[in-house]
Amino acid sequence: MSVEAREKRQPWILLSPALVAVTLLLFVPLAFIVVYSFWLRTATGADQTGFFLDNWNEALSDPFYRDILISTLRIAAITTLVCAVMGYPAAYFIARSKGNKALLLLMLMLPFWISYIIRTMSWINILGVSGAVNWALIEIGLINEPLQMLYNETTVILGLVHFLLPFMILNVYVALESIDISLEDAACSLGSTRWQSFLEVTLPLSLPGLAAGGLLCFVLSAGTYITPLVLGGPTDAMFANLVFEAIITQLNWPLGSALSLMLLAVLGTLVLTYNHFLGMGQLMKGLG
Protein backbone atom coordinates (compact mmCIF):
# COMPACT_ATOMS: atom_id res chain seq x y z
CA MET A 1 0.00 0.00 0.00
CA SER A 2 1.30 3.46 -0.83
CA VAL A 3 2.12 5.92 1.92
CA GLU A 4 -0.64 8.23 0.75
CA ALA A 5 -3.26 5.53 0.90
CA ARG A 6 -2.14 4.73 4.43
CA GLU A 7 -2.32 8.40 5.42
CA LYS A 8 -5.88 8.43 4.14
CA ARG A 9 -6.92 5.30 5.95
CA GLN A 10 -5.38 6.12 9.31
CA PRO A 11 -7.96 8.66 10.55
CA TRP A 12 -10.77 6.26 9.72
CA ILE A 13 -9.13 3.50 11.72
CA LEU A 14 -8.86 5.90 14.65
CA LEU A 15 -12.45 7.10 14.25
CA SER A 16 -14.13 3.77 13.69
CA PRO A 17 -14.44 2.54 17.31
CA ALA A 18 -16.18 5.76 18.39
CA LEU A 19 -18.35 5.90 15.28
CA VAL A 20 -19.37 2.27 15.67
CA ALA A 21 -20.24 2.89 19.33
CA VAL A 22 -22.38 5.94 18.53
CA THR A 23 -24.09 4.12 15.68
CA LEU A 24 -24.87 0.93 17.59
CA LEU A 25 -25.66 2.53 20.93
CA LEU A 26 -27.51 5.65 19.78
CA PHE A 27 -28.61 5.88 16.16
CA VAL A 28 -29.74 2.29 15.59
CA PRO A 29 -31.56 2.23 18.97
CA LEU A 30 -33.32 5.49 18.05
CA ALA A 31 -34.39 4.02 14.70
CA PHE A 32 -35.52 0.91 16.57
CA ILE A 33 -37.84 2.79 18.92
CA VAL A 34 -39.40 4.52 15.91
CA VAL A 35 -40.41 1.08 14.65
CA TYR A 36 -41.28 -0.09 18.17
CA SER A 37 -43.69 2.82 18.67
CA PHE A 38 -45.97 1.32 15.99
CA TRP A 39 -46.18 -2.04 17.73
CA LEU A 40 -48.75 -2.91 20.36
CA ARG A 41 -48.36 -4.21 23.88
CA THR A 42 -51.05 -6.83 24.37
CA ALA A 43 -52.75 -7.67 27.66
CA THR A 44 -50.55 -10.75 28.04
CA GLY A 45 -47.44 -8.56 28.01
CA ALA A 46 -46.20 -9.76 24.62
CA ASP A 47 -45.55 -7.28 21.82
CA GLN A 48 -47.63 -7.50 18.69
CA THR A 49 -45.50 -6.44 15.74
CA GLY A 50 -47.07 -4.59 12.87
CA PHE A 51 -48.10 -1.07 12.01
CA PHE A 52 -50.55 0.27 14.57
CA LEU A 53 -51.24 3.93 15.17
CA ASP A 54 -52.78 3.35 18.62
CA ASN A 55 -49.79 4.55 20.66
CA TRP A 56 -49.36 7.68 18.62
CA ASN A 57 -53.07 8.29 18.72
CA GLU A 58 -53.02 8.06 22.50
CA ALA A 59 -49.85 10.14 22.92
CA LEU A 60 -51.00 12.92 20.59
CA SER A 61 -54.70 13.21 21.37
CA ASP A 62 -55.03 12.42 25.09
CA PRO A 63 -55.33 15.81 26.86
CA PHE A 64 -53.48 14.29 29.85
CA TYR A 65 -50.26 14.00 27.85
CA ARG A 66 -50.79 17.34 26.13
CA ASP A 67 -51.29 19.19 29.42
CA ILE A 68 -48.17 17.68 30.93
CA LEU A 69 -46.17 18.50 27.81
CA ILE A 70 -47.31 22.12 28.04
CA SER A 71 -46.55 22.39 31.74
CA THR A 72 -43.13 20.78 31.14
CA LEU A 73 -42.32 23.43 28.54
CA ARG A 74 -43.59 26.13 30.90
CA ILE A 75 -41.39 24.88 33.75
CA ALA A 76 -38.38 24.70 31.42
CA ALA A 77 -39.04 28.24 30.13
CA ILE A 78 -39.36 29.71 33.64
CA THR A 79 -36.22 27.87 34.77
CA THR A 80 -34.28 29.21 31.79
CA LEU A 81 -35.49 32.75 32.40
CA VAL A 82 -34.61 32.64 36.10
CA CYS A 83 -31.17 31.21 35.27
CA ALA A 84 -30.57 34.02 32.79
CA VAL A 85 -31.63 36.76 35.21
CA MET A 86 -29.64 35.30 38.11
CA GLY A 87 -26.68 34.17 36.04
CA TYR A 88 -25.95 37.07 33.71
CA PRO A 89 -24.84 39.61 36.36
CA ALA A 90 -22.82 36.90 38.11
CA ALA A 91 -21.05 36.00 34.86
CA TYR A 92 -20.47 39.71 34.18
CA PHE A 93 -18.96 40.07 37.64
CA ILE A 94 -16.52 37.20 37.06
CA ALA A 95 -15.57 38.38 33.57
CA ARG A 96 -14.90 41.98 34.61
CA SER A 97 -13.52 41.25 38.07
CA LYS A 98 -10.03 42.48 38.80
CA GLY A 99 -9.61 39.82 41.45
CA ASN A 100 -8.73 36.18 41.05
CA LYS A 101 -10.86 35.07 38.11
CA ALA A 102 -9.58 31.51 38.18
CA LEU A 103 -10.67 31.15 41.80
CA LEU A 104 -14.11 32.64 41.10
CA LEU A 105 -14.57 30.24 38.20
CA LEU A 106 -13.33 27.29 40.23
CA MET A 107 -15.82 28.11 42.97
CA LEU A 108 -18.54 28.10 40.35
CA MET A 109 -17.39 24.75 39.01
CA LEU A 110 -17.42 23.12 42.45
CA PRO A 111 -21.20 22.79 42.70
CA PHE A 112 -20.98 21.49 39.12
CA TRP A 113 -19.02 18.52 40.38
CA ILE A 114 -21.25 17.91 43.37
CA SER A 115 -23.74 15.17 42.73
CA TYR A 116 -27.04 16.25 41.15
CA ILE A 117 -29.09 14.08 43.51
CA ILE A 118 -27.32 15.51 46.57
CA ARG A 119 -27.87 19.07 45.41
CA THR A 120 -31.51 18.35 44.68
CA MET A 121 -32.22 16.69 48.01
CA SER A 122 -30.29 19.41 49.89
CA TRP A 123 -33.35 21.65 49.50
CA ILE A 124 -35.34 19.30 51.74
CA ASN A 125 -32.97 20.31 54.56
CA ILE A 126 -33.68 23.96 53.83
CA LEU A 127 -37.40 24.05 53.07
CA GLY A 128 -38.74 20.85 54.66
CA VAL A 129 -41.14 20.82 57.60
CA SER A 130 -38.18 20.43 59.97
CA GLY A 131 -35.80 22.33 57.70
CA ALA A 132 -33.69 25.41 58.33
CA VAL A 133 -36.23 28.01 57.25
CA ASN A 134 -39.11 26.64 59.32
CA TRP A 135 -36.86 26.22 62.33
CA ALA A 136 -35.62 29.81 62.03
CA LEU A 137 -39.14 31.21 61.62
CA ILE A 138 -40.38 29.32 64.68
CA GLU A 139 -37.33 30.38 66.72
CA ILE A 140 -37.96 34.06 66.09
CA GLY A 141 -41.66 33.56 66.79
CA LEU A 142 -43.08 34.46 63.39
CA ILE A 143 -44.98 31.20 63.06
CA ASN A 144 -46.12 28.50 65.48
CA GLU A 145 -46.62 25.63 63.07
CA PRO A 146 -44.11 24.72 60.36
CA LEU A 147 -45.11 25.86 56.87
CA GLN A 148 -45.47 23.34 54.05
CA MET A 149 -43.14 24.86 51.49
CA LEU A 150 -41.94 21.77 49.63
CA TYR A 151 -43.41 19.52 46.96
CA ASN A 152 -44.90 21.99 44.51
CA GLU A 153 -44.03 23.42 41.12
CA THR A 154 -42.05 26.29 42.64
CA THR A 155 -39.70 23.93 44.46
CA VAL A 156 -39.24 21.89 41.27
CA ILE A 157 -38.17 25.08 39.48
CA LEU A 158 -35.95 26.04 42.41
CA GLY A 159 -34.19 22.66 42.26
CA LEU A 160 -33.74 22.94 38.49
CA VAL A 161 -32.32 26.48 38.75
CA HIS A 162 -29.88 25.32 41.41
CA PHE A 163 -28.78 22.48 39.14
CA LEU A 164 -28.54 24.46 35.88
CA LEU A 165 -27.30 27.90 36.92
CA PRO A 166 -23.58 27.01 36.49
CA PHE A 167 -24.26 26.02 32.84
CA MET A 168 -25.75 29.44 32.19
CA ILE A 169 -23.04 31.40 34.01
CA LEU A 170 -20.27 29.50 32.27
CA ASN A 171 -21.68 30.09 28.79
CA VAL A 172 -22.31 33.78 29.38
CA TYR A 173 -18.86 34.11 30.93
CA VAL A 174 -17.17 32.56 27.88
CA ALA A 175 -19.00 35.02 25.61
CA LEU A 176 -18.24 38.05 27.80
CA GLU A 177 -14.60 37.08 28.12
CA SER A 178 -14.15 37.16 24.34
CA ILE A 179 -15.43 40.75 24.07
CA ASP A 180 -12.75 43.40 23.84
CA ILE A 181 -13.21 45.67 26.88
CA SER A 182 -11.91 48.64 24.91
CA LEU A 183 -15.12 48.54 22.87
CA GLU A 184 -17.05 49.55 25.98
CA ASP A 185 -14.50 52.25 26.77
CA ALA A 186 -14.73 53.52 23.20
CA ALA A 187 -18.51 53.78 23.50
CA CYS A 188 -18.10 55.70 26.75
CA SER A 189 -15.52 58.07 25.37
CA LEU A 190 -17.87 58.77 22.48
CA GLY A 191 -20.41 60.05 24.95
CA SER A 192 -22.61 57.17 25.98
CA THR A 193 -23.12 56.32 29.62
CA ARG A 194 -21.85 53.04 31.12
CA TRP A 195 -25.38 51.67 31.06
CA GLN A 196 -25.90 52.69 27.42
CA SER A 197 -22.61 51.18 26.34
CA PHE A 198 -23.56 47.97 28.13
CA LEU A 199 -26.98 47.84 26.46
CA GLU A 200 -25.73 48.70 23.00
CA VAL A 201 -22.31 47.07 22.88
CA THR A 202 -21.72 44.40 25.52
CA LEU A 203 -25.18 42.87 25.76
CA PRO A 204 -25.64 42.28 22.00
CA LEU A 205 -22.14 40.82 21.73
CA SER A 206 -22.81 38.43 24.60
CA LEU A 207 -26.15 37.19 23.24
CA PRO A 208 -24.64 34.04 21.64
CA GLY A 209 -23.44 32.94 25.08
CA LEU A 210 -26.80 33.73 26.61
CA ALA A 211 -28.51 31.71 23.86
CA ALA A 212 -26.15 28.74 24.34
CA GLY A 213 -26.70 28.76 28.10
CA GLY A 214 -30.43 29.16 27.57
CA LEU A 215 -30.60 26.20 25.21
CA LEU A 216 -28.75 23.98 27.67
CA CYS A 217 -30.96 25.05 30.59
CA PHE A 218 -34.14 24.54 28.59
CA VAL A 219 -33.27 21.15 27.10
CA LEU A 220 -31.86 19.75 30.34
CA SER A 221 -34.78 20.92 32.47
CA ALA A 222 -37.42 19.76 29.98
CA GLY A 223 -35.87 16.27 29.98
CA THR A 224 -35.66 15.71 33.73
CA TYR A 225 -37.75 13.34 35.81
CA ILE A 226 -35.64 13.12 38.98
CA THR A 227 -36.21 16.68 40.24
CA PRO A 228 -40.05 16.38 40.10
CA LEU A 229 -39.81 13.03 41.91
CA VAL A 230 -37.68 14.49 44.71
CA LEU A 231 -38.99 18.05 45.03
CA GLY A 232 -42.41 17.93 43.37
CA GLY A 233 -45.84 16.87 44.60
CA PRO A 234 -48.04 14.14 43.11
CA THR A 235 -49.40 16.52 40.47
CA ASP A 236 -46.06 17.97 39.38
CA ALA A 237 -45.05 15.21 36.96
CA MET A 238 -43.10 16.38 33.93
CA PHE A 239 -43.08 14.74 30.52
CA ALA A 240 -40.04 12.57 31.24
CA ASN A 241 -41.91 11.19 34.27
CA LEU A 242 -44.56 9.88 31.87
CA VAL A 243 -41.84 8.15 29.87
CA PHE A 244 -40.39 6.62 33.04
CA GLU A 245 -43.85 5.49 34.16
CA ALA A 246 -44.66 3.89 30.81
CA ILE A 247 -41.32 2.09 30.50
CA ILE A 248 -40.44 1.09 34.05
CA THR A 249 -43.76 0.94 35.94
CA GLN A 250 -46.38 -0.02 33.36
CA LEU A 251 -43.93 -1.86 31.11
CA ASN A 252 -45.81 -0.52 28.09
CA TRP A 253 -42.73 -0.20 25.93
CA PRO A 254 -44.40 0.68 22.61
CA LEU A 255 -46.27 3.57 24.26
CA GLY A 256 -43.08 4.59 26.09
CA SER A 257 -41.29 4.67 22.72
CA ALA A 258 -43.91 6.97 21.24
CA LEU A 259 -43.74 9.30 24.27
CA SER A 260 -39.91 9.40 24.15
CA LEU A 261 -40.00 10.25 20.47
CA MET A 262 -42.50 13.03 21.15
CA LEU A 263 -40.12 14.56 23.68
CA LEU A 264 -37.23 14.11 21.27
CA ALA A 265 -39.20 15.77 18.47
CA VAL A 266 -40.03 18.84 20.56
CA LEU A 267 -36.55 19.31 22.03
CA GLY A 268 -34.81 18.21 18.82
CA THR A 269 -36.67 20.89 16.85
CA LEU A 270 -35.39 23.42 19.34
CA VAL A 271 -31.79 22.22 19.05
CA LEU A 272 -31.97 22.17 15.24
CA THR A 273 -33.46 25.68 15.11
CA TYR A 274 -30.68 26.88 17.38
CA ASN A 275 -28.08 25.12 15.25
CA HIS A 276 -29.53 26.65 12.08
CA PHE A 277 -29.27 30.22 13.34
CA LEU A 278 -26.26 30.11 15.66
CA GLY A 279 -24.34 26.89 15.00
CA MET A 280 -22.92 24.59 17.64
CA GLY A 281 -19.63 26.47 18.02
CA GLN A 282 -20.62 28.66 20.96
CA LEU A 283 -22.16 25.71 22.79
CA MET A 284 -18.99 23.67 22.43
CA LYS A 285 -16.87 26.55 23.71
CA GLY A 286 -18.97 26.62 26.87
CA LEU A 287 -18.74 22.87 27.38
CA GLY A 288 -15.09 22.37 26.58
Binding site: A18, L19, V22, L25, L26, F27, V28, P29, L30, F32, I33, Y36, V219, A222, G223, Y225, A240, V243, F244, I247, W253, G256, S257, S260, L261, L263, L264, L267, G268, V271, M280, M284, L287
Partner: peptide, 22 residues
Protein backbone atom coordinates in the same frame (compact mmCIF):
# COMPACT_ATOMS: atom_id res chain seq x y z
CA UNK B 1 -21.73 16.38 15.20
CA UNK B 2 -22.40 12.63 15.07
CA UNK B 3 -19.90 12.02 17.86
CA UNK B 4 -21.38 14.64 20.18
CA UNK B 5 -24.97 13.63 19.32
CA UNK B 6 -25.38 11.66 22.59
CA UNK B 7 -25.46 14.93 24.54
CA UNK B 8 -27.84 16.59 22.08
CA UNK B 9 -30.43 13.85 22.61
CA UNK B 10 -32.25 14.14 25.97
CA UNK B 11 -30.81 11.50 28.28
CA UNK B 12 -34.22 9.96 29.00
CA UNK B 13 -34.73 9.30 25.30
CA UNK B 14 -31.25 7.83 24.95
CA UNK B 15 -31.94 5.65 27.99
CA UNK B 16 -35.22 4.33 26.58
CA UNK B 17 -33.81 3.70 23.10
CA UNK B 18 -30.76 1.82 24.39
CA UNK B 19 -32.77 -0.23 26.88
CA UNK B 20 -35.39 -1.33 24.38
CA UNK B 21 -32.96 -1.98 21.53
CA UNK B 22 -30.53 -4.08 23.57
Amino acid sequence: TLLIAPILVPEVVLAVALLLFL
